[in-house]
Structures are given as C-alpha cells and as structure tokens.
Design a protein around this nucleic acid. Structure first.
Length: 882
RNA sequence: GGGCGGUUAGUUCAGUUGGUAGAACGCUUCGUUUACACCGAAGAGGCCAUAGGUUCGAGUCCUAUACCGCCCACCA
C-alpha cells in the first residue's frame, strides 16, 4: 500500500476538510430515531480574528461533537457570529476616517450600509479560520445576531419583557464611555486598579465669622462643579455644628446644603462627602433620598459643559488640573495623597468610564434570576469545574438591573416609538414590532423611533433558541432544545452564560443546557493574558501553518487541565507535531506490511484463536482499556487526561512495544489482523482530537469498514473479553526482564552487537512457562542468545545481576567483556573518584573556605561530594561481582 | 473589603473517591538493527510552599501562615 514517507499536514487538511463538507457530514437534521446532541458555540464577534482562546474553546467543542457523532448521536453544532455593536462600529468608523469621512456627515442609514458592506467583506474571516481548525460545525445553519430571524426574536423579547413590566426607562447613573459615547452595562465596565490621588479641599462654611471651613476628600475634583450638597454621618459628633448651615462651593460660589446620612463612613477621608448626584452613583442615591436636583456638568465626551463656568470645554482631566490650580490660588487646597482605587474602563476601548446621569433602558433582573438560580441549586444545571457554581450564584443573588440601551447605530434598534404630539406624557411611549402609522392615544402621525440600539448581549443571550427559529415553534427547536453542553471561558460567564440561562428559563420555560464546561484562560508563558495590545499573542493560524492543525489541537488539549489556565509558548506545539509524526510512521510500518487477504477476521472469533500470541492479546487488552479510559475522561470533561491516555497508548504501548514484537511475526495472520484492528480502532478513538491525520491514514487502510469517512464511523465497540489483567501482568514481566537486560548492557558498557546469554530464576511455575514460550521477544528486544529460565539456578561466576518483580536475572560477563580490563577500569574510576572525594572533603573541612567562599561555591562543593558518594558505591558493587 | 485558583523533578505542568510520586521538554551515556533523529535504548533528577491536626497511612482531607495570580465590590 502506498503511503508517503513524509507526512504533509497542509495537504491532508485541505483534502479532507473539503471532502467532509462536500459530503454534508456536518449537517444535522431532525431525525426522530436518533438522540440529538447539541452544543452551543460561543459566537465569536465579527471584528475578531481567531486567537488561542478560540482555538482552545473550539477544539474542545469539536472533540465532543465528533465524539458524540461517532457514538451515534444526531449532532448539531450551530456556528455563528455576533455583531459586536460597539467594536464593529469603532472599526468601521476608523475605516471611514482613513477615507476622510465620518459617521455624522454620512448619516445613520448610509453608515449602517457601510457596516454591512464591511461585514460582508471581513465578517466571515473568523468562520474560515474555524474551518482551518477543523471544526465540524453545521455551516449550513450559520447564524448572525443581526439576521432577520434573530432580530425578530430580539424585538419579540423586548416587547414581552416590556409588557411584563421587566423593561423600564429611566434616569440613572450608568457607566459612560466618553470615547465610544455610549452607555455601558456594569459588566462592560471593567474595574482596574489605578494609581490616583486623593485630594483634600476646603469648602467654606457660610457663617457670620467667615473663614471657617470644612475639609472634603475626593478623587475626582472636577466633579465638584456639579456639587449640590455636603453630607456627613448623623452620628459623627465632629460635624454636629454643620447642621442647618450652608456651605459655599468654592470657585463657583454656589450654596450647598448640608445633609446627614448614615451612608457616609465617618472613618473614610475626613468624614465629609461632597454630593454630586449627576456624577456618582452613591451621590445619586443621596440626592434622590434628600430631594436634591442633580447638576450635570459634563458633555458626552466628558468635557465640561456650560454649567462649569470658566472650565467649559476642558476635558475632564484637564479640568481636574485647572481646578486644583484655582483652589490653590484661593488657599482652599489642603493636600493630595496617593490613592489606589479601582476604576471602570470600557471593555472595548479601555477608556476610563465616567459615571453619568442619563436616561436609559433597563431590564429588571431579579425576577429573571430566580428560576436561573433554582436550576443550579437543584442540580439541573452543572458547572465543570464545580467551583464556578458559587461564582454564578453569587452574581445571581446580587444581580443588578441591566442597562440595555446603547447610543450607537450598529445594532438592533430599540422597538420603541415616541409620539411627538404627546410629548413627555407616558402615553407618548409606544412599544411595537413595527412603526405605528398613528399614535394610538392622540392619533398624531408625528412618530419617531428611539434612536438607541440594544446591547449586543441582548441578542446573544437568546442564542440557544433564537438560532433554532424561536419564537416560531419549529421542529428543530423542539428536537434540539434544550442543548446539552456549553463550553466557554470564564470571561463571559456573566455577560453571556448567566443571561442565556435566564432567558431560556423565561422564554422557553427550560434552561438552555445542562452542562457548562468552563475552561481556563490562555496565557503566555509568563502568565499574562494574551492580547493584541500586549503583543504577546501566539497566532493559531501561524501555528497551524508551522505544525499542522492536528498538532495544534492535540498540544493545546493535552496541556489544558480541567478549568486551569493554559500557559503557552510556541515550542509546546512540538508535542502534537511529534505525535502526529510518530503516528504517521507507525502507520506506515503497518501499511507497508499489510496483506489484504489476511486481515478479514471477526474480532469475536479471534479471542478463541490459539495462534494469537501474548503480544497480540496484550495490545488488544491495552487498547480496549485505553479507549474506555479515553471515553470516561472525556465524558467527565477531563479532556487532557483523555488526550494523554491515547497518546500513552499509541506511542508507548503500541509503538514502543507491540510494533517491535510484531516485527517478529509480521507475515503471520494473527499479527496482521491484530496490527490492522488495533491501528484502525486507535485511529477512531483519536479522531475527535486529531481529525485530519486520522482520516488520512484511515482512508489508506484496506476498505472493509462500510463508511466513507472515519468521521461518521462508529466509535469502537467495547470488547470486554479482550481486557485481561492476567495478560497485562504477564507482559509486564517480560517487559521488566527486557528492561533489566538492557540496563545491564548499559551499565557494563557491553557492545550493542554482542549477544548475551541469560539465566533467569523464577519462583512461579506459570511465569516460568510464560517466559519460556515467549523468550523470542526477550531474545529480539534485548538482543540475547540462549535464555535459560528455571526455578532454581546457582549464580554463575562473573555475572551481572538484576532483580525485577521477584525475578532474578543473571548475565555472565565472561567472553562478553574483557573482565580484567573492566576490573582495571572500575578500579581506576573508583580510585579517581575516591581521590576527588578526599580532596573535596578536606576542602569542606577548611574553615576558611566555608566562611570566605561565596555560598553558592560552598554549596556546589557539598553537592559534588554527595554526587561522588552516590556514584562510587554502585561501581564498588560491580567490581565485587567480577 | 469579599470570593476563587496556584505553590510537586532544572523548566512547564498532570496527579478522579487518601494506599510505595508521573508526563513533556531539558540534561547524561549509548545507538543509525529494513516506521520514525519530529527517532530508539538506558539513566540522573522530588523533605509534593510552611506549621499544626485527622488517620494504620496525607501531594491528596481539616485549620492557620506566606508568596504568586485571577474575579467581584458605589468606600467618596
């Protein structure tokens, strides 16, 4: 059979991927006679390119998908992308800017056309990369969150929640990104520690005798322009005198009320809080409970507005400096102290988020969280590893309302219309699927749609059912929902996983999946997260080009322990490349020797075949154990264990031992059959992990396997009758003997080509028989001549000796090595070491050396001494044997 | 401030209900015997972070401590 000497991954990958796709193997249909297995892809966003996190994530999913498909499930792995509102808008805006255009002059409609154009051109890049990864997704069912069907689901959900009173609109402090100029949800504001300053500022008290002050502490002095009050804790005796007094806001000279509220911590700062309801969430709450009118002093881009007096037009940080200078001039500045605190940053552009008072749409989350919480508590939904359960419940129990409106253009426009005639009346708000002709209240035709769009996650949280046609009751939805598993990274547990569970419970009355497998974050070998901005990314496509897809997949899986972060460096991919190479060459050996007429045998019949050797039985026994272990590990999400188990089997059991033994009887039928069966089945077990190389080799094997592809072949059926601990341990003894003899050869420096005669002393009769019937293997693999095994043996003269598992092994050295010469060599070596030992010992007894030499040098000397001790004893033992 | 993860061979990491410590890479020595040097053989290398406790027995369970890392949090 013809098989190239050199494995060429690229060729293999291209050939077989298009073959699978062409045959339609990825496609899943409703098939009532089979059980469905559905896996939910975390849809990558269209601006993204494949990074290692994706590679890990999708490899894991593809392993499950291929495995389950082989196990007879109707597998649906539905791919798709999300529209990534802010990120995509940013990308397209940047592109426009390069052409000298901008979004505002273009206008909304034309801009959105531009975005669609962009997405048609670049938005499927990541899909193609997933194909190169070998992902067996049902590409015919590829979905996009802006598709008609999914958009329809979004509107439907908005309306249902609104009618249920779970969506409301209101003025609140939200996270505002001044660069993207939009509101963000709490999750989208990522807290990072910032080395800031705490500024202490004097606020004058309005009294008869002026000059009295109260000192206020703040990290954001620029917000003082929006101060409306000063607040102290009612129990704080230091500030009792402030009651009913007024405070003068410096610079702007506005009168501030003094309010008392237990929310203020007397121990923090000076115990006096300046109250800025429009720019701080706590202050906002205070303002509400004390009836204070907020003063918003900032524009959308975080510059100071007209209410900021002389500071109008300045950026927030510029204004901060200017205000401090102004305060210093007036003698109202006390001090600034370094202060570390966590500040929110936009998760898309990393700009410091500004808390901002504005009118937004929110989802009331607490009622949605309840059933989602219950599902986890009563075990219907499980996290792997389990520790994420706590993280999840914690978040759910303290859930806050979700700000879903975004002041951008790319996304699902909010299905809310306002009647201009009705103005600010509540009746002016019309929530509808399509724009109403007339206002149902006043009949006016002057109606405008809300200009905001929805958070991208407001469409992805519906993914498990919106992609299956919801709200229509499709047969796919009924068959494939709820899905089985979700594989994802910890970063999106709150953004996506938790919300999907809530939406599933709410709209489908059933949580969307039962297993959530959270894998680790991919980091570089210094432990920092891989990111474009840090420039420490390892591009999976580059790795694929260099090592092959299978190598990438195998390597990344084998080093990813359940839920543990993954530390990567390019050289780690050599594991997989070497393994692929090993597999290829082992297969070559088998293929070159396979005679088609000899392999057609039924396994069930084979067990009884007396021609089967110990080696044949052993490798079959090992194979079935390996394949079972593999499956068990996989089903419990211990994927690295699975990968390493099959690696261990193929490399160290099949290649290192069985193939070497099989070479003895290569032409015999039992060996031919065993070689063929074990290789063919091993390929099937390995296929989910390394799809390309396994398909390629499998297709070169003689065709008696009924299907056109390993991809749709059946998972090897367990044949318990082959699993035998007795066979295993019988072989283990042989292996031990062989290793012992090889060891003797190495320690006595026996020429490789010299044949040895061997005496073996065994206690058990059965073992003796086994050794005698199988001594051909010892002869071949340990390269020996005659082997004499008996229950009673006298130690031969001048013999090397070893004992393994209770079996004694003697190898006479006379005639094998020059005994006198070896004696001399050993004596010389011992003498040399002894003198070195003496020297080192006396050195270490020298007090001057110990006290004056650098510590490392002394330690080295000590280590050396220990080393010599350890070296010298075995040599002495050997000398005695001669 | 709360929660979580890590600390095991020179390095990077496995170690599933407690039972004589594993892999990969690197290192040393040998080897090109008709699959493979992206290879084979033999070998060296570990008070499993520290201190207590439970147990016949602890890398594994409990309690503290230290260091590294992550997540969450409206202390201005």
């Amino acid at each position: 059979m013809d098989i190239p000497t050199q494995y060429n991954p690229k060729e293999t990958e291209q050939k077989w991927y298009s073959y699978w796709e062409g045959k339609g193997y990825f496609h899943a249909e409703v098939s009532p006679d089979r059980k469905p297995y559905t896996i939910v892809i975390p849809p990558p966003n269209i601006t993204g390119i494949l990074h290692m996190g994706h590679a890990l994530n999708n490899t894991i999913q593809d392993i499950f998908v291929r495995y389950k498909r082989m196990r007879g499930f109707e597998v649906l792995w539905m791919p798709g992308t999300d529209h990534a509102g802010i990120a995509t808008q940013n990308v397209v805006e940047k592109r426009l800017k390069a052409k000298g255009k901008d979004r505002e002059t273009l206008g909304r409609e034309k801009f959105i056309k531009e975005v669609w154009k962009w997405r048609d051109e670049y938005g499927s890049a990541i899909i193609n990369q997933l194909k190169r990864l070998g992902c067996s997704c049902d590409w015919q069912r590829t979905r996009f969150t802006m598709d008609e069907g999914l958009s329809h689901a979004v509107v439907e959900v908005f309306i249902r929640l609104y009618r249920k009173g779970l969506i409301y609109r209101g003025n609140y402090i939200i996270n505002w990104c001044p660069r993207c100029r939009t509101a963000l949800s709490d999750e989208e504001a990522q807290h990072r520690d910032v080395d800031g300053m705490m500024y202490y500022i004097r606020y004058p008290i309005e009294t008869e005798k002026s000059m009295d002050h109260v000192v206020v502490a703040t990290t954001r002095p620029e917000t003082m322009l929006g101060d409306v009050a000063v607040c102290v804790n009612p129990k704080d005796t230091r500030y009792k005198h402030l009651k009913d007094k007024s405070i003068i806001l410096p610079i702007l000279n506005r009168k501030l009320k003094v309010i008392m509220d237990p929310k203020v911590d007397p121990k923090f700062g000076t115990g006096v809080l300046k109250v800025t309801p429009a720019h701080d969430p706590v202050d906002f709450e205070l303002g509400k409970s004390h009836n204070l009118e907020p003063v918003n002093v900032m524009n959308e881009d975080a510059t100071i507005n007209e209410l900021g007096g002389d500071f109008e037009g300045m950026d927030r940080f510029e204004a901060r400096e200017a205000i401090i200078d102004a305060l210093k001039e007036r003698g109202l500045f006390v001090k600034a102290e370094p202060h570390k605190h966590a500040v929110g940053h936009c998760y898309r552009c990393h700009t410091m988020v500004e808390p901002r008072l504005s009118r937004q749409w929110f989802v009331k989350m607490a009622p949605l969280a309840k059933p989602a919480l219950r599902a986890v508590k009563d075990g219907r939904l499980k996290f792997y590893p389990g520790r994420w359960t706590k993280v999840y419940t914690n978040w759910m129990e303290n859930i806050r309302d979700w700000c879903i409106s975004r002041q951008i253009w790319w996304g699902h426009r909010i299905p809310v219309y306002y009647c201009k005639e009705c103005g600010e009346k509540p009746e002016a708000v019309i929530v509808a699927k399509v724009k109403p002709e007339r206002c149902p209240h006043c009949g006016s035709g002057d109606i405008e749609q809300d200009s905001d769009v929805l958070d991208t996650w407001f469409s992805s949280w519906l993914w498990p059912f919106s992609t299956l046609g919801w709200p229509k009751k499709t047969k796919e939805l009924e068959y494939f929902y709820p899905t089985d598993a979700l594989v994802t990274a910890q970063e999106i547990i709150f953004f996506w996983v938790a919300r999907m569970i809530m939406s599933g419970a709410e709209f489908m009355n059933e949580i969307p999946f039962r297993d959530v497998y959270i894998h680790g974050t991919v980091r570089d070998d210094t432990g920092t997260k891989m990111s474009k901005s840090l420039g420490n990314i390892i591009d999976p496509i580059e790795i694929i080009n260099r090592f092959g897809t299978d190598a990438l997949r195998f390597s990344i899986i084998s080093i990813t322990a359940q839920g543990q972060d993954v530390f990567l460096s390019p050289q780690k991919f050599e594991i997989g490349r070497n393994f692929a190479n090993k597999l290829w060459n082992a297969s070559r050996l088998v293929l070159m020797n396979l005679k088609e007429g000899l392999i057609k045998r039924d396994l069930c019949q084979m067990v009884k075949d007396p021609a089967l050797t110990l080696a044949d039985r052993w490798i079959l026994s090992r194979f079935y154990q390996a394949s079972e272990d593999f499956a068990k590990s996989l089903e419990s999400y211990r994927i690295n264990d699975a990968a390493n188990r099959i690696y261990e089997f193929i490399w160290h059991e099949f290649c290192d031992w069985y193939l070497e033994m099989a070479k003895l009887t290569m032409d015999e039928a039992h060996t031919q059959v065993t070689l063929y069966k074990v290789l063919e089945k091993s390929l099937r077990v390995l296929h989910p992990v390394m799809p390309f190389i396994t398909e390629d080799i499998w297709q070169r094997l003689p065709r008696e396997h009924g299907t056109d592809s390993i991809m749709i072949s059946k998972w090897p059926h367990m044949q318990k009758q082959f699993v035998s601990k007795e066979i295993d341990s019988e072989m283990e003894i042989l292996i031990n003997i062989i290793q012992a003899i090889r060891n003797i050869r190495a320690t006595w420096r026996i020429e490789p080509k010299k044949e040895l005669s061997v005496f073996i002393k065994v206690k058990k009769k059965a073992t003796l028989t086994s050794i005698n019937t199988n001594n051909v293997y010892i002869k071949r693999l340990a390269r020996t001549g005659d082997i004499e095994a008996r229950t009673a043996i006298n130690r031969p003269k001048h013999a090397a000796y070893a004992v393994r598992a209770g079996i004694e092994i003697f190898v006479p050295l006379e005639g094998v090595i020059d005994i006198e010469k070896e004696k001399e060599r050993l004596k010389g070596k011992i003498a040399g070491l002894a003198s070195e030992f003496k020297h080192a010992e006396s050195k270490l007894k020298n007090k001057n050396f110990i006290s004056k030499a650098p510590k490392e040098v002394v330690q080295k000397a000590r280590d050396r001494l220990e080393f010599i001790k350890a070296e010298i004893n075995p040599l002495k033992k050997n000398l005695k044997l001669l």
